[in-house]
Amino acid sequence: MTQILNLTINGTSQDIPIDDPRATLLDVLRERIGLTGTKKGCDRGQCGACTVLIDGRRINSCLALALSYDGAEITTVEGLAQGELLHPVQAAFIEADGFQCGYCTPGQIMSAVALIAEGEAGLDPERVREGMSGNLCRCAAYAGITEAVLKATRAMNREDAA
């Protein structure tokens, strides 16, 4: 039985027919509607590659049953840049070389966007590291990731002040 799932993805409301109740949010994004920016590294909540924002909060989309999120607002890595203008977190990841192979990067970036919004880590590098520890990076770009998050936090603080 096909059920209709309504999601607002990167600002656009969509009715998505779900032919299989087993589909996770990650597999809906990747295989059914072609938003492949979000990655699958483990499919079991262990790596963070699939991190997306649901109603502004970061979660692992691989352990989210899609049907359970009917009506939710989803932000994926594809929804951050405005046209050619990168989100400050994206720009900071490039500048600080916060990645190598780039596979964990969409998840890292979504996690970083949420971490900054949560406002608990601020500019304390140790809190940033802890807060980013749900995102594994096998290339081990951690120094760059931490630096990028701090850079972006500063840049966004300035924007807010301006």
């Binding site: 920016g37 890595v77 594809e78 990168l86 990841f93 490039i94 070389d97 780039g102």
Partner: peptide
């Protein structure tokens, strides 16, 4: 020099094998 493929990687537009449909 920062990575020439940086923009693709931070926007989710870099295509890895399993991203093909």
């Amino acid at each position: 020099m920062t990575r020439r493929d940086g923009v693709l990687k931070v926007t989710g537009r870099a295509t890895y094998a399993a991203d093909n449909r």
